Amino acid sequence: MTVVRGDERTTLVCDVCGDTVDAAATDGGLVWALIADHGWSGSPLADGPHRCAHCTLTSRSGGTAADGPGTGGILGIDHRDGVTVITCAGDIDVDSEDTLRTALRHATEVGGHVVVDLSHVHLIDSTGLGLLVRAHSDAAARGTTLSLAAPSTFLRTVLRTLRLDGVLPIHDSRAEAVAQVTGRAGSTASGHRS
């Protein structure tokens, strides 16, 4: 979401469709009031991604990753060379926690390293982060690794702010993450990045 504050007006711009809504500028709390008053949704952080009312309804009615942010889902689970890659999409939050939990449980049952591809994820809340941290701890206890691949700039900021970038291995791409955990890191760009 873009917040444009002026002396007399505050304008929000939807991250998905570019729609705008504005109101007379008042105190700093106006941004949250403006979001709530117009049916917008998104991140609990003021500068994080948000959706206008239309895009919020689209996401709740089953929009796909190609349609923009929406209810979290799993686009695929691939097993290769001792690595399970879980490709997530949409928002990873309290509404989609069961889907991610099931995918992570499946990866644990298969065994080996786990890469969570976040390239199609637009938002993650504390519920989603908690699932990833627990899965990372479980993987470490089994002698394997859980890595994150291709998080957006916003997700990287959230991870850095919460100091999870020092806990969870983060890679620029899915290929880089897979190469790192399979010991083929020399065939791609350098490994761990935060």
Rank of each mutant, 00 (worst) to 15 (best):
L146C: 08
D37S: 02
D47N: 12
C52F: 01
R134K: 15
I92L: 13
D117N: 14
L131I: 10
C52T: 00
D19C: 10
G128I: 02
A140M: 08
D67I: 11
L118H: 05
S119L: 12
W32C: 04
G42K: 03
L45K: 13
G128Y: 01
V83H: 01
G18P: 13
D37M: 01
L118I: 07
V115G: 07
S119F: 08
H122Q: 14
L104V: 07
A140N: 12
L132K: 11
L131N: 04
D98Q: 10
R51K: 14
L57H: 13
D98C: 06
G42S: 05
T108R: 12
V116F: 09
R105K: 09
S126N: 08
L118G: 13
G90C: 04
G63R: 01
V13D: 01
P44Y: 10
L30V: 15
S137M: 14
T11A: 08
H50C: 10
T64P: 05
V16H: 15
T87Y: 02
A23I: 04
T87F: 03
S119A: 15
I86D: 00
T108K: 10
A23H: 06
G42M: 11
D7H: 08
A23S: 11
L12N: 02
D125N: 15
D19R: 11
D22Q: 05
G28H: 11
G111I: 03
C88Q: 01
S41Y: 01
W40E: 04
I35M: 03
I86Q: 02
T99R: 05
G42W: 02
I35Q: 00
P44K: 06
L30I: 15
L34S: 08
D37K: 00
H79M: 12
T127S: 11
L75H: 07
G82A: 06
C17W: 01
L30T: 12
T127C: 09
T144A: 15
V16G: 14
V133A: 08
S41L: 05
G6N: 02
T144Q: 13
V31M: 04
S61L: 14
A23V: 15
D27R: 12
T26K: 15
V133G: 13
R142F: 09
A139M: 13
D125P: 15
G82V: 03
S96F: 05
G72K: 07
H120A: 15
L100T: 08
T144N: 14
D7C: 06
